[in-house]
Every structure is written in C-alpha cells, then in structure tokens.
Simulated assay, not measured.
Amino acid sequence: MIGPVEEMLAEIVEATGAAHLTLIDPDSQSPEEAGRMARAAADGGTDAIMVGGSVGAAGHALEDTVAAIKEESGLAVILFPSGVSGLCSNADAVFFMSLLNSRSASYLIENQALGAPLVYKYRIEPIPMAYVIVEPGGTVGWVGDAKLIPRKKPELAAAYALAGKYFGMRMVYLEAGSGAEEPVPLKMVAAAKKILGETLLVLGGGIRSGNAARNLVAAGADVIVTGTGVERSEDVEAFVREITSSIKAR
C-alpha cells in the first residue's frame, strides 16, 4: 500500500517532471543549524527533506534534528538510514532500502530485518527502495561494502535496477557517493530508466549545478537528491532554487 509521502512524491513527479530532495546529515551540524538549513531549502523549492548519513546519524542527535527540521520547514522528513540505528520515531517516512550491490548481508537484509519491527512500532511510512552504488562510491560505498558499478557499464546498473523492480521495490536509487566529482553518467541513467518504466528513478551524488540536474532529468531521473552541495553552499536557498528551477516544468 502506497503511503502519503510516497504518493506526494509521485504526484510531484507527474505534475512538474521531477522532484527534489535535500539530504541533511545529523552528524554534520547542530539540530538548530539543520533546521535553518531545511527552512532555506524549503524556501528554495525542495519537496521534502531526507535525514541520514553513512556514520554517526543516530540517537538523540537524529531525533532532535528531525524535530528541528519539521518545525522550521514544515516539510515531510524521510529517513535515509545506513542501518537500524538510523531510525527514529518522529520522522514521517523511511526509505526502506536494500543495498543490492553490497557484499555484506548486513546491508542486503540484516539491518532491514532488525529495523522492520521499529518501523512498524513507530508507524513510519516505509518506502521500498533498491539502492545501487556507482563508482566512485565515496564513504557510503566503503561503509556499505559495495561492489561498485563501473561508470562505463550502464547495462550493469540497468540490470540491478530491474532486479529491484522485480523484487517489488517502487524506487531505485543510483548513487555516485557524497562529494563525487561527477554525477552518475547520463547513459547509465537513460539505460536504467528505459528498463524501469514507471518505477521512480532517484539520482544522487556529485550534483552541483542546475545544469547537471537538468541533464539527469532529461536522461530519465525522476528525483534529484543534493546533500554535499547544500552543506557547502553559502546560500542554501539560492543553491536549491537553482536546482529546482532547472528540473521542474514551468
């Protein structure tokens, strides 16, 4: 059953051509700073806030960050956990992911099995997602023990994406890694989207400009995620607005 947050994202994609999510790592700043960042991102037109990180995104810092973001921005908060410790009770939804190209059972199913009862207990909306890490992969590739998809092998990314679809996952996330020099290659995006059809394709990593985001959407991306670019921006609202104005139909 599709929940309200997932339905909202699908409706935004259908109405405007693409959705934008701002990723905030609780380990990178105080909850108060995260709240101000989220408010600026909301003013810039982002559609929802993702909260999570590869390391350190857990406990009271996570809960306090989610609370501050919701209060300041008024947007839905979607957890983006690296493991069971990345769950909290006050978020709206969670990307319930399996890292399909991980060599560790922890990121394929073990954390998910441990986390599922908490998602149920907290009544967080689970959004089933296939997560696939592409070269260079960054911290998340190392932490997740991923067998990285080579950038010159779009057919491999498409195969993993299709496997995720056949597993019943309603979103596929291709991730180049935080701080990547370049986004996922356009040929890879196009190959994945061609085979996914209506399954939403999410892109993250290395997206630093409106032009880069626009090209990804033109190639087939449905949802654009920016995190490092937001963290490093001196004007969060302006940076987010550059992205959102480039990917959404006027």
Results as ranks from 00 to 15, higher is better:
6 E>G: 14
8 M>S: 14
10 A>I: 14
13 V>Q: 03
13 V>T: 11
14 E>D: 14
17 G>Y: 00
17 G>V: 04
18 A>E: 05
19 A>T: 10
20 H>F: 09
21 L>M: 13
24 I>S: 01
25 D>P: 11
26 P>R: 07
29 Q>E: 13
30 S>D: 10
31 P>F: 07
33 E>N: 08
33 E>W: 13
34 A>C: 07
35 G>W: 13
39 R>H: 15
40 A>S: 15
42 A>Q: 10
45 G>I: 02
46 T>D: 10
47 D>F: 09
48 A>R: 00
50 M>A: 07
55 V>N: 10
56 G>Q: 00
58 A>T: 05
62 L>S: 03
64 D>N: 07
67 A>R: 13
68 A>H: 01
68 A>L: 02
71 E>C: 03
71 E>H: 06
73 S>K: 00
76 A>H: 15
79 L>Y: 02
88 C>P: 07
91 A>P: 04
91 A>R: 02
93 A>S: 04
97 M>K: 04
100 L>Y: 07
102 S>I: 01
107 Y>N: 06
108 L>P: 05
108 L>A: 13
111 N>K: 12
113 A>G: 13
113 A>F: 15
120 Y>L: 14
123 R>N: 14
125 E>Y: 08
126 P>F: 12
126 P>A: 06
129 M>G: 05
133 I>F: 07
134 V>Y: 09
136 P>M: 09
139 T>W: 00
143 V>W: 11
143 V>L: 12
143 V>S: 09
144 G>C: 08
144 G>R: 09
146 A>W: 10
147 K>Q: 09
149 I>P: 05
153 K>W: 10
156 L>C: 02
156 L>I: 14
156 L>N: 09
158 A>Q: 06
159 A>Y: 03
163 A>R: 11
163 A>V: 15
163 A>M: 15
164 G>Q: 04
165 K>D: 10
168 G>A: 04
170 R>D: 09
171 M>G: 02
173 Y>L: 11
173 Y>E: 09
174 L>C: 03
174 L>H: 03
175 E>G: 06
177 G>T: 11
179 G>C: 05
180 A>G: 11
181 E>D: 15
184 V>G: 00
184 V>W: 06
187 K>G: 01
188 M>K: 00
194 K>N: 08
200 L>V: 02
200 L>T: 06
202 V>L: 12
207 I>P: 11
209 S>M: 08
209 S>Q: 06
210 G>R: 08
210 G>H: 07
211 N>E: 14
212 A>W: 06
214 R>W: 00
218 A>N: 10
219 A>D: 07
220 G>Y: 10
222 D>T: 05
223 V>C: 04
225 V>E: 09
225 V>A: 07
230 V>H: 04
231 E>S: 05
231 E>D: 14
231 E>Q: 13
232 R>D: 11
232 R>K: 15
232 R>H: 08
232 R>T: 12
236 V>K: 03
237 E>G: 00
239 F>L: 11
240 V>N: 04
243 I>Q: 01
246 S>L: 11
246 S>F: 01
246 S>A: 11
